[in-house]
Design a protein around this nucleic acid. Sequence first.
RNA 1: GCGAUUAUGGUGAAGUGGUUAACACGCUAGGUUGUGGUCCUAGUAUGCGUGGGUUCGAUCCCCACUAAUCGCC
Length: 369
Amino acid sequence: MKIKYNLIKKEKNTKGRLGILDTNYGSFSTPMFMPVGTRATVKTLSPEELYEVGSGIILANTYHLWLRPGEDIIDKAGGLHKFMNYKGPILTDCGGFQVFSLAKPKDIVEDGVHFKSHIDGSKLFLTPEMSIQIQNKLDSDIAMSFDECPGFPSTYEYMKESVERTLRWAKRGKLVHNNERQSLFGIVQGGEYPDLRKYSAIETVKLNFDGYSIGGTSVGEDKKTMYEMIDYAIPYLPEDKVRYLMGVGDPLDIIEGVIRGVDIFDCVLPTRIARHGNAFTRNGKINIKNLQYKEDFTSLDETCDCYTCKNYTKAYIRHLIMVDETFGARLLSIHNIRFLIKLTEDLREAIKTDTLLSYKENFIEKYHA
RNA sequence: GCGAUUAUGGUGAAGUGGUUAACACGCUAGGUUGUGGUCCUAGUAUGCGUGGGUUCGAUCCCCACUAAUCGCC
């Protein structure tokens, strides 16, 4: 079956909304943070650990799985869920963002995108149809339309052209999509231009997707601009479909996104910074490698309920990171993902009690202290 | 006791008779937003074993001392 978004409650003072998303692999509440598992694994975490931190859904990547091990292998394994032994919902990103980082503007043509493999430099060509067909085989619960993700800043002329192309690609992808149990999302682009965001949103919604995402964010723009990009698109998205803001995962950005009506977020930040020794805490982000934690035998965050915080000290985690033991990255990843998911849990409570704005004020006060 | 060799930062080391002593690691501090899986950026010896000498000038040349390593007795 296709996913179904159930709007439970709208917050009084903001556009924040509480909902439940039903999928083939269970239901989860929104707003929700979605951990990134590019290559069919959320780096260093087992599926059991993902369930434990309250992860409602995870993201895997079409481009990376297309190259290795290849969608046919995953198809033979019985689909992505069986292949990676993950029993919750999975969303696959379309590969558009990899194109953004691997291809040059001149390599983007009407039919698709020419670019070089990040593994061996071999020439590759990806089309909207291929992206959807690969995702059909991966058998994720939600597939994303193949889009172009322009950088920031882009000229108005280029962005207009890009938005039109992304719309044509969305139509082409939708035509070949043929997995009955898989939902398909459209992606709104338009950069920092209000009328292009509006146009992109209206035209994408006309194509009637199962959900909508806002893309083209987190590509170098400042926070204010990113929030405006959300504001320009949200009014034109239907209330009865789920909304996903792509690539955003800084705690403050998640709060601002929820206030603006976003339901799902994804981001590599919690796992990437974990591998580099950083942890989110209620009192701001910390670098566990700092000398001040050498003899700090307290947990990362005394308000946190995660496995890491219940069992390990900063001094121990610092030691593991300093000597490059992977268990350190795992402990920090568990904590950072739990931190963001707990944040969305708190935001859900704030929506229930119509206290989203005061929650934000209190959070910022401590986080920036 | 004798002989040889060597002595440069936390470590391994490069180097030159004359402005700011290479590089790497480590360490210290930042960065990271639909992941190109240990990455990127910056800082880190007021000093070249100790004491004398030669020289306008010595980490670099000479002498002594000290220490380490190897060999011999």
